[in-house]
Amino acid sequence: MAKNPVIDILFESLTESTQENQILYRKIARNYDKSYKSLSLLAPTTLANTVSEYFSASGRNSKDLYTLDVCSGTGLCGEALRKVEWLGVIDGVDGCKEMLEVAQTKGIYRTLYHQLISAESPLPIQNSSYDLVTCTGGLSFGHLPYQCLEMLLDILVPGGLLAINVSSYKNPGSDVKYQESVEKTMKQLLGKCTLVKEVRVDVVKDDTRYSHGIEYEQILCYQKDA
């Protein structure tokens, strides 16, 4: 089983408290990209390819589109979008200042908002502002509250796309309960959006995530109803 100290620390040390987890991210921010990429984790790349294909098929040019990368961290999703020649404006928001400082050095984002998103602390963004909202890695236990999913839909323009990744766990626990809550919430929101794309990425057994219970990941794309 491949070992990755930084990623292992995340899995072993994350708690239900989003505030406590931000302290952990501050400590690992400078080494996060190297550790993440060494595992060949596919969520940002798969999501970027999926949304690029979706908008291309609809005849929309990415240079005309505005994107908000939620829980943007060090900018891995933004990087992946640029690699598929996503030319439009990308903004980002994250609760960890140190992670955002790394993202800022990449020259990808127009604006980076430092904010820990919650129902009590909504985004400082007007509704119907973005064509695409992405979230890779943020929809997990101790991160973005699943109750905020409707907020992410609200900031999309009608016909805009919400693209998220969620993990499927082999064993019951807090992570499973959180993912079940995400799925339940999105089903409740189907009156406001439509699931238009679903991509499954299996986790191989020599991946450190497998030892922490993740069986596969999914990229889910929801189009906001007009």
Rank of each mutant, 00 (worst) to 15 (best):
S62Q: 08
K63E: 09
A57E: 15
D69R: 02
D64F: 08
R60Q: 13
D64G: 15
C77H: 01
S56T: 13
V51E: 03
C77K: 01
L68C: 04
Y54G: 07
A80G: 10
K63P: 01
E53C: 11
G59C: 00
G73R: 01
E53P: 04
C71E: 00
Y66Q: 06
S52D: 09
R60G: 03
L76R: 02
N49P: 07
G59H: 11
K83L: 14
D69Y: 02
L65T: 09
N61E: 15
E79Q: 12
L68T: 01
E53G: 11
S58Y: 10
G75P: 01
L65S: 10
G75T: 03
Y54H: 09
V70M: 04
L68Y: 03
Y54R: 05
G73Y: 03
D64W: 00
T50E: 13
A57W: 07
V84H: 10
D69W: 11
Y54I: 08
T50Q: 10
S72E: 06
L81R: 03
S52L: 13
A80E: 15
C77V: 10
D64C: 09
R60V: 14
N61V: 15
E79R: 10
L81I: 08
S62E: 03
L65W: 04
G59N: 06
L76E: 11
L68E: 00
T50R: 14
G59D: 09
T50C: 10
K63Y: 07
F55S: 10
N61M: 11
N49C: 15
K83P: 01
F55Q: 06
L65C: 07
K83N: 12
G75F: 04
F55V: 14
A57F: 14
V70S: 02
G73W: 01
L68I: 05
K63F: 10
T67L: 11
S62T: 15
C71L: 03
S56M: 07
S52R: 12
